[in-house]
């Protein structure tokens, strides 16, 4: 990876998204710097998930631009965004429920597989070698996220916390430059949250992956993020280090409400 690329990895520039009469995002601008862990927070309905969906190509803005690694990609569709090196997880876990954990994670490698349908089918030569290489990488991720014990279990049968972990594994399998996590810790108990925090920081460290995540748990956000962006009613109201954001008056107002005299 060319860590020397100057400038931000991702630039969102004046993006607005509209659903009928509802302005889900209004003129939101932000950057994601290479190597950082960025948290996006805000009250319910603030537009956090919409922002993630715009970045990963599920929605397209009617205004503004998105640049990734310096190139404009405002209009790309999700598969093309994934091909650029942006992986994501979903708020409501989106695993392939009928497939085993191992197969789920292997699908994350699909983009990196090249090959010939015929050779694949015959399980021969380069196809076989390629499959084994991908398997090796996937096994590394499985070790890393400590899910060896459930490799063969159908994903749909796992408890929620583990499903979230498998979804993270699948996203990692694509070796993304930018990883988008939509509430990776929602619905988890304290212990699971601690594990997930550790994994996120380790991923950031070891795989050199830039991470942008949405999270509600303020303790977690303050602990793991380098920078925090706050959305409220589709607008960005704060952007800074956790300490700065914690003291920001606009943020306090958004979360606690403002007294109207």
């Amino acid at each position: 990876m060319s860590g020397a690329t100057p400038g931000p990895l991702l630039e969102v520039d004046g993006v607005s998204v509209r659903f009928g009469a509802l302005l889900a995002l209004q003129q939101v601008s932000l950057t994601v710097q290479p190597g950082e862990v960025l948290a996006i927070i805000g009250p319910n309905g603030a537009g956090k998930t919409t922002l993630l969906n715009v970045i990963s190509g599920f929605y397209h803005p009617y205004q503004g631009r998105i640049r990734f690694a310096g190139r404009d990609r405002t209009w790309l569709r999700p598969p093309d965004v994934a091909a650029l090196g942006i992986a994501r997880t979903f708020q409501n876990v989106a695993l392939f429920r009928g497939m085993s954990v191992l197969d789920n994670i292997m699908t994350g490698r699909l983009l990196r597989m090249r090959g010939n349908v015929l050779l694949d089918a015959l399980w021969w030569g380069p196809a076989r070698r390629q499959e084994l290489e991908h398997r090796a990488f996937v096994e590394r991720i499985i070790d890393f996220l400590e899910i060896q014990a459930i490799r063969k279990t159908p994903a749909g049968r796992l408890p929620y916390g583990l499903q979230k972990r498998v979804e993270l594994a699948r996203a990692l399998a694509a070796e993304p430059q930018l990883l988008l996590l939509d509430e990776p810790m929602a619905g988890m108990n304290v212990e699971e949250k601690e594990d997930m925090c550790r994994f996120i920081l380790d991923v950031n460290d070891e795989f050199d992956t830039t991470i942008a995540l949405i999270e509600h748990d303020m303790g977690v956000v303050m602990d793991i993020s380098d920078r925090v962006i706050v959305l409220d009613y589709g607008r960005k109201i704060a952007d800074g280090t956790p300490e700065q954001v914690r003291k920001d008056q606009a943020v306090l107002d958004a979360y606690l409400g403002v007294a109207h005299d």
Binding site: F58, R77, F90, A94, G98, L110
Partner: peptide, 29 residues
């Protein structure tokens, strides 16, 4: 065999399971 062993087969099974997730890992629906 085609659907069990090949890349397209794996992609197809993924699409069958969850459209959104399939899109997000780069499978062109």
């Amino acid at each position: 065999v085609f659907f069990q062993k090949t890349r397209i087969g794996r992609a197809l099974r993924a699409v069958a399971d969850d459209h959104e997730a399939a899109l997000s890992i780069g499978i062109p629906l």
